[in-house]
């Protein structure tokens, strides 16, 4: 309901460095060094780094190609972790009902989850940041209309919006990315508008104006770089949320097709066998999902604390 940024408008700050490039790089660099000194953030980086590496290298490191049906052996179905396969290799994390190696399925599932999460966050960030900048810079009617749309959208839970969209669009990777972009852009728009409003009243923007620089140059070279730190925090948290939302939707069976299982779909597949004690089919993809989300959130939390030292918990 609130009007973000309004209260911060009056901040009477002096202009930072003269060159906009330096002003942009310095906060980002400071952020990074502070981040690496934070032990929890470092743990987050290690967790996320390992998972991303595993996902990227999946075709090389996975014991099996989980999509290649000819490689699957039904005789190996629902084996517990550590079992020997019929051809002598070991299923470290067990197998699913079709005899698929869970470790391989998880590595490939991670690829899908990360792709969907990162792609949707990146697209939403670009759209939202553009909308926020326009809103803050144009002000007046444009601002009022854009922010009203943002308000209305944010008053609906994101899962409901995603549910509506996917009911309409059907299944597919591009469709779920689209649904996630639509549910998330408003958060970025709001954040960027808030910080752009503050920045646009600073002296360096006045200086740039008095030099008769074009609006476009002022927005992209001067205001945008200084809006980046809070935007990066929001983006970090949003990637984790997007991955979680995708997993939830896939778990409900309305996100991704079965041919390209993400972690959420793997968990859903195992759900049926949970009752009969084959816990590993659901639990290991779930643990991977948790690690990923907690890892990203650790980084995000540390970033937020660095940017806003007063805030805790």
């Amino acid at each position: 309901m609130g009007q973000p940024g309004r209260s911060a408008d009056a901040a009477p700050d002096a202009a930072p460095g003269a060159s906009p490039g330096a002003a942009a790089r310095a906060p980002l660099l400071g952020m990074l060094t502070a981040l690496l000194r934070n032990r929890l953030a470092l743990a987050g980086f290690v967790i996320v780094g390992l998972l991303v590496l595993g996902a990227l290298l999946a075709p090389l490191v996975a014991p099996q190609n989980p999509y290649d049906l000819s490689k699957l052996n039904f005789m190996d179905g629902r084996l517990p972790p550590g079992s020997m396969s019929t051809d002598g290799s070991v299923y470290l994390l067990g197998t699913d009902d079709q005899g698929r190696d869970m470790l391989s399925a998880i590595l490939y599932g991670l690829r899908t989850s990360l792709l969907v999460g990162v792609a949707s966050a990146a697209i939403a960030l670009v759209i939202g940041a553009a909308a926020g900048l326009v809103s803050a810079y144009a002000g007046g009617r444009t601002d009022a209309v854009l922010m009203r749309v943002v308000d209305i959208q944010l008053s609906f839970p994101s899962i409901l919006i995603a549910l509506i969209l996917l009911a309409v669009l059907g299944q597919g990777v591009s469709k779920i990315i689209l649904a996630l972009v639509v549910t998330q852009w408003a958060y970025y728009a709001r954040t960027v508008r808030g910080s752009a409003l503050v920045e646009s009243r600073r002296a360096y923007v006045d200086a740039a104006r008095s030099m008769a620089l074009s609006d476009r140059r002022i927005i992209f070279r001067h205001i945008l770089p200084n809006c980046l730190p809070p935007l990066i925090v929001v983006a970090t948290m949003r990637v984790a949320y997007a991955i979680m939302l995708e997993a939830t939707l896939s778990f409900l069976g309305i996100g991704l097709p079965v041919t390209q299982p993400s972690l959420g779909l793997l968990i859903a597949n195992g759900f049926a066998y949970l009752m009969s004690g084959n816990y590993w089919i659901s639990v290991f993809p779930g643990v991977t999902l948790l690690l990923l989300i907690v890892g990203i959130n650790l980084i995000g939390d540390a970033l937020r604390d660095i940017l806003n030292p007063r805030r805790e918990g």
């Binding site: 997993a247 939830t248 759900f271 009752m275 004690g277 779930g286 999902l289 907690v294």
Partner: peptide, 26 residues
Amino acid sequence: IMTFSILGFSLPTFWIGLMMVLVFSV
């Protein structure tokens, strides 16, 4: 308590639900 609340915020609801079924029912 605060750690618990951070977990409550960041863990997916459906996953916790599954674990509840696994632990308390199965």
